[in-house]
Design a protein around this nucleic acid. Structure first.
Ligand SMILES: [Zn+2]
Ligand SMILES: [Zn+2]
Ligand SMILES: [Zn+2]
Ligand SMILES: [Zn+2]
Lengths: 162, 162
DNA sequence: TCTTGACTAGTTATCTTATAACATATTCCT
DNA sequence: AGGAATATGTTATAAGATAACTAGTCAAGA
């Protein structure tokens, strides 16, 4: 769907991009017997609207506007479900959440965060993960989860004035 | 001082470890003309007491007990100074801060966080950083800062019961 | 059918983390 | 000494996250 992560920073047919990711997620949920309930589904759709990370309260506002509950746990629970099952990722550096571009596929994402436009891309991180494990090995540390995030400038924002 | 990051998870003379790091930081501050004032110095000492990350409010409590201000900005400002000048690191995953084990040396730290004992080690991340840049390259993304953190089990916590 | 248990979604209340804005004091340089 | 820059302190508030409880849904089994 976006195997190399190049989509987010390139101009593309985002309606198709969004719909594809959603359909993909639905198929995965179906296959795994997970209940993609209305709030959860809507939360995912909201995250899929842009290639940016959204704070839990941003998502909550949107959900509340649409008739779902207006209290923080509503958003946090939906997001927790999405993250737990691989439909979304949590971006620690931003205290925010973003839809996963590869739901259902095992992958270690590398997040590239543009400090100018807030764009977020999910690059393939297998090699980075391997080298992280190599770094941890000599210390006898057993890696279970990792977060790999970079802040910088996306191609579009590297232009003139910075 | 701990070039390979093995110290944190191994039993060692921590008094010497702490004093060495502090002395090193002082030398760096001196050389760079930075003012390691009493609050800042004390905040660093507090971080150096253990190989764990501390929340800003934990540091604040300690500072307040010792006669410094009791309001959040007191801790946040001291910590911001330490991070900005490379005497400490911010651990995003934990919303916490830890003393840097290599102040004054350019380095990309890889943080290894033990989920059982909260121990924190700072492994050398040059290779990981390089592979991250390689992952970002094809997207045309210019990396400026990165955070690389892993959660797992340190050698001591891999024992029997988990 | 009715009950029980698992799960979902809603609420109130509270906690933790972080920053804005302003006042005072200190330090550094001329 | 005077003035600029830096540092420390305050109050108040914003932003992010969770605990604890209540109630609705739904399917399996008595
Ligand atoms: Zn898109
Ligand atoms: Zn993903
Ligand atoms: Zn030590
Ligand atoms: Zn360091």
């Amino acid at each position: 769907m976006d195997p190399d992560g190049t989509l987010a920073f390139a101009s593309h047919d985002h309606a198709a991009c969004r719909d594809g990711a959603l359909a993909h997620a639905e198929a995965v949920a179906e296959a795994k017997g997970l209940r993609l309930t209305p709030v959860r589904r809507r939360a995912l759709e909201i995250l899929l609207e842009s290639h940016q990370a959204l704070g839990a309260y941003d998502v909550l506002d949107r959900l509340a506007e649409e008739g779902f509950g207006r209290q923080p746990p509503v958003a946090y629970r939906a997001l927790e479900f999405l993250v737990e099952h691989g439909f979304a990722h949590r971006i620690r550096r931003l205290n925010a959440f973003a839809a996963c571009m590869h739901p259902g596929e095992a992958h270690v994402p590398v997040f590239l965060i543009c400090s100018a436009c807030n764009g977020l891309a999910e690059a393939p991180g297998a090699a980075v993960a391997a080298s992280l494990r190599q770094a941890a090995g000599p210390l006898g540390f057993r890696v279970e989860r990792m977060s790999i995030e970079a802040v910088g400038l996306c191609p579009a924002c590297q232009g003139g004035s910075e």
